[in-house]
Amino acid sequence: MGEAAAEAVAFKKNFDVLHALIYFAPEAQERLSAVGLEGGSMAYFASRSAAMGPVGPAVVTATFHNFNPETVARSVPRAWELATPEAILAARFAAVDDAYRRLLGEETLASAAVAEAAELAREATEGATPEGRPLYAGHAHLAWPEQPHLVLWHALTLLREYRGDAHVAALTVHGLSGLAALVTHTATGDGTAAAAVRRTRGWSDEQWDAEVAALTDDGILAADGTLTERGQDLRERVEAATNAASRGPWQHLGAEKTARLAELCRPLGRTAIKAGAIPSLKPRG
């Protein structure tokens, strides 16, 4: 495994859950509903895109990449009629605070380990640049919170969106639309269920089946729905391009500090998972 690929695996394994738990936390729905948003998809689309301002559905679709545009249009721009981006962002940070306190506990949040992790994660973001990364750039201009656990979450959010923007660019360069990206990803056999992806991203069975047929005709998918050799090569090139374009923060932080950040975040993520942060993930060991 190359250095960039190893860094990508490390992020997914050690850091990602500490950001992604906000998309599953009941506190997020509660806080966002309190400022006027309707539940479900609207809370997700509005809270993640609010850092870019009151953008239209086309911008959200483009930057999120793999959602059905019709699904996005049901939430945006109506979300901005119900609450301002500023109110939504404040509610999102409040929800993170609530969720972290429930999942990790007050004693952990006040620990030296969390303070150190926050400092290192923030330092890593200093190696990120906004060019060509709209979601990262939107979140990067927000004021840093004061509490260490919120600094940690915000830093990990920046790192995740930085990588996400790179991934969208890699998919685009390699000719994969949002739907094609989803179909080929589930075909890698990593355990992602196609039915769940269709549901959460808003694609119909007919749309999904049509994309499967097109990718089969193109020689990307085999008749049984798995990736062909050409399809496997395509996905590998996408991941390699994503990894290569996402190294800036980790190069800036350096190998020793990156390893230390992983060491600090790993038990936090495990604690969050054991507490039910992400329903689809089961505790290990």
Rank of each mutant, 00 (worst) to 15 (best):
M42S: 13
R48E: 14
G56E: 12
V59L: 10
A51S: 15
H65K: 00
V60I: 05
A58C: 01
G36N: 13
M42R: 10
A34M: 09
P57N: 08
V55E: 11
S49H: 05
A43R: 14
A62N: 04
V60Y: 14
A62W: 00
G56I: 04
S33P: 01
T61G: 04
M42H: 05
P54G: 13
F45K: 08
P57S: 08
M52D: 01
S49K: 08
A50T: 10
E38R: 15
Y44P: 05
G36A: 06
V55L: 04
A43L: 12
G53R: 09
T61W: 07
A34P: 08
T61N: 02
H65L: 03
F45N: 02
A62G: 10
E38G: 04
V35L: 01
P54C: 10
P57Q: 14
G56A: 08
P54M: 12
H65C: 00
V55G: 12
G36P: 07
L37I: 12
P57C: 04
E38I: 04
Y44D: 03
A62L: 06
V55H: 08
G36T: 06
F64V: 07
T63G: 08
M42F: 11
S47D: 06
L37K: 15
L37E: 15
A62S: 14
A46N: 02
V55C: 14
G53T: 01
E38H: 12
E38C: 01
V59Y: 00
G36M: 09
A46S: 03
A51W: 12
T63V: 09
S33W: 04
V59F: 02
S49M: 15
F64K: 09
M42T: 03
R48A: 07
S41L: 13
F64D: 00
A50R: 13
V60M: 07
A34Q: 05
A51C: 09
S47I: 04
A50K: 12
A58D: 14
V55P: 09
L37C: 08
M52T: 01
A51L: 05
P54T: 09
V60C: 02
S47Y: 12
G40R: 10
F45I: 03
M42W: 11
P57T: 13
V55T: 01
R48M: 07
F45Y: 11
P57W: 09
G40C: 13
S33F: 04
E38A: 11
T63C: 02
V59D: 14
A43F: 03
Y44E: 06
F64H: 09
G53V: 03
V60H: 07
V35I: 14
S41G: 07
V55S: 10
G40S: 08
A43P: 00
V59N: 05
F64W: 01
P54R: 04
V59W: 03
L37R: 13
S47V: 01
